[in-house]
Simulated assay, not measured.
Amino acid sequence: MTSLSIGTREVARYCDGRDMPTELSPRPYLHPVSTLAGQPLTEVAPADHRHHYGVSNAVVEINGSMFWGGGSYVHSSGYQMLDNHGRQVGGPVEATAHAIDQQVEFLDVDGHHLLTEQRRITAELLPAWDGWALSWHSRLLADSGDLTFGSPATRGRVGAGYGGLFWRISGDQLATTAQVDGGGEPLGSTSPWLLLTQDRPTGPVSLLLAQSRTQVLPWFVRTGGYVGAGPAVAWEAPRHLPHGEQLDLHLTGVLLDRTIDTDTARTLYTELEQLS
């Protein structure tokens, strides 16, 4: 297990996921991820969705193998547990207190090599905001053939195009507000950022999830039933990646021990873009 720290505070732990059951699509993940005041903003294996694991690269389907975990959506029949789960196997971790670098191999349901991911995760203090930023960058290389990424939406479930870098947020029993730039419906929005806020008994928290303006994917977000969000790789249609090409996935989360509004979120996002 590897940790990320801000000063003397441990703010995130990186787990290899090798002990996860096969039907959960084993993968490395971050948990717990906490604010500077120690409030956890991740959850693993919750009763409602046992396959949700903190912050992880949880693409739903690649060439027919499942990397999200749990049941697969079968049109007209709903979700069914199929024998289609792949796994991610991480190589040696190169780490400092502020960065994790790792090469990850995606193995399909039969254990065959499917693709190689170069992963970098960083932690950065944002002193002007009394918070910190967790950045996750995954570069997926189609080094074994053409790849097709799918989701429940590409199989017929409208609005369920989830899959990719995904953050399962703790506090599902609390009222959670989701807002995007310009207002409107967060689900499916192509706003460059998504703001989630909660008023907790231990104090308010905000999580600003940000994408790069150069590549904005539609947001998948849930605030009812459970709380989770991330950019969707295959929101409405399958995404194809030819052999030899690569797909870059980026997600930055800013963790704050207070509530902020959308104007403040916009200013914070602009500063993040200037830092990158």
Score class of each variant (00 low, 15 high):
Y73C: 13
A128F: 04
S212E: 12
G91H: 05
V233E: 07
T8P: 15
S25G: 09
H52K: 02
G203V: 07
V11A: 13
A210W: 08
L24Y: 11
Y269G: 01
A128P: 05
D261G: 06
S65T: 15
T270N: 07
I100Y: 01
L196C: 00
E124L: 14
H113P: 09
V59I: 15
L255V: 05
H112I: 10
H31N: 04
S5K: 06
I100A: 04
H51S: 07
Y269K: 03
V233Q: 10
R119Q: 05
Y162T: 04
S212M: 10
Q246L: 10
Q215F: 10
L41M: 15
R18Q: 15
W136C: 07
L126I: 14
P186H: 09
R239V: 15
A229D: 00
Q80C: 10
G131C: 12
G7V: 14
A47T: 15
L275I: 06
L125E: 15
P242A: 07
F106M: 09
Y29R: 01
L115C: 11
I169Y: 06
V33M: 08
H240V: 11
D110P: 00
Y269N: 01
A47Y: 13
I6E: 04
D108L: 12
T154Q: 05
S56V: 00
L241M: 09
E236I: 08
Q198F: 07
R120G: 02
S34P: 01
T252A: 08
S25A: 15
R13S: 04
G111T: 12
P238M: 02
V205I: 14
G38K: 05
A160D: 15
P40A: 05
N84L: 10
D146F: 11
F106S: 07
N84M: 06
Y226V: 03
V221K: 02
R157V: 12
A95R: 03
S276Y: 08
F67D: 03
V180K: 03
D248L: 09
M81Y: 02
T148G: 08
A58L: 02
P231Q: 00
P204N: 13
Y162P: 15
S77M: 15
M81N: 08
E245V: 11
R18L: 14
D130A: 12
Q211C: 11
V216Y: 13
T202N: 11
Y53V: 07
L195H: 02
R222V: 06
T8Y: 07
Y53W: 09
M20H: 11
P204V: 14
P127G: 09
A47G: 14
L241I: 08
E94H: 07
Y162N: 06
A237C: 12
T154H: 11
S3N: 05
S138G: 00
V221H: 01
G131W: 09
Q102E: 03
S34Q: 10
S189C: 06
L24H: 14
A47H: 12
D83W: 00
R119A: 05
D130K: 10
L125M: 12
L195A: 01
R200A: 15
A237E: 12
G71M: 10
E271T: 08
G164P: 01
D19V: 13
V216M: 09
Q118W: 04
A95H: 04
Q80A: 15
N63T: 09
R87I: 09
T177F: 00
H113F: 13
Y79E: 13
R222W: 01
G71L: 09
A229R: 00
